[in-house]
Amino acid sequence: MARIVHYINQFFAGVGGEDQAGAGPVLLEGPAGPGRRLAELVAPEHEIVATVWCGDDVAADKVDEIVGLVRSVDPDLVVAGPAFTSGRYGLACARVVAAAHSVGVASVASMHEDNPGLDEAGAAAVVASGEVARRMAPSLERLAAGIQRLLAGETLTAEDGRIGAAARLTVVTDDNAATRAVDLALARLGGDSAATEIPLPRFDRVTPAAPVADASTVMLALVSEGGLVVADNPDGLESARATKWLRYPLEDRDALAAGDYMSVHGGFSTAWANEDPHRILPLDAARELEAEGAIGELLGEYFVTTGNGTSVANARRFGVEWAADLRRSGARAAILTAT
């Protein structure tokens, strides 16, 4: 019998609504809420041994804590949702299954294909739910079928209601890419207008934040993907494919002297950046604006990474971490210098 842990939010756990959105995470023994029906659907082969719930406002930031609770009962599989079209809940479900999957725990989430959390599930499987909670019963049936297949060692496909990006997996081909390119050109000229090896990508569209109403009262932050680090790069920021970001102090500093800072960015010649580091991080101009009172104050540190060949997943994580950090430190505007 496989051991399953179910992740749900505070509402479906029966704890409360928005008033409890900041609570949790909490580990409960056995199934709860929609988990009771799900437990019936996967029995007798499998058992929901525990439920973890967390409030919608905090869950997406407490994924490590949630996954810690999940792993404390040593499950064979983690299931999250159904989250329908609920954005915060969907994001939490997606991040929980992504994190569990990345540490080797079989995982599946359930949400509607329009849920904004869908893209955050990484390589973990997501199966489609209905649009609203009224569709709970059929959504749970599909989820239960997916659980059975995953626990049988099979992979979920579109036939199982799987949604979201399919992973691009490396395969060895019989012919080299040059031969395949000529074959593809002939197929297209022969009238096969759909033939391709790469499906068209789907890009995020980010809605810019509203302008700051009165800059003279806000704390401004300087952040950059230009690879500007202190001399000799003691923290080892990568020149490409960054896996991390760094923070360096700006307090008591009015300028960035050449020689004290350097750019490690691998995507452009860094000669001009090293000659005058303000070309990457305009501390000189920011201090002038601060002195004039055009901005309220400058944050006492800057954040930096290298935006060269950096994976979208890492870049998204850096963005989430920067936004949360800036919000906590009181910054309400940021200048992101890009190269």
Binding site: A167, N176, A178
Partner: peptide, 14 residues
């Protein structure tokens, strides 16, 4: 990942 097409690997949706 030779852009001139030398290699015998590819990415496929799995």
């Amino acid at each position: 990942l030779s852009p001139l097409g030398w290699g015998r690997i590819a990415a496929r949706s799995g």
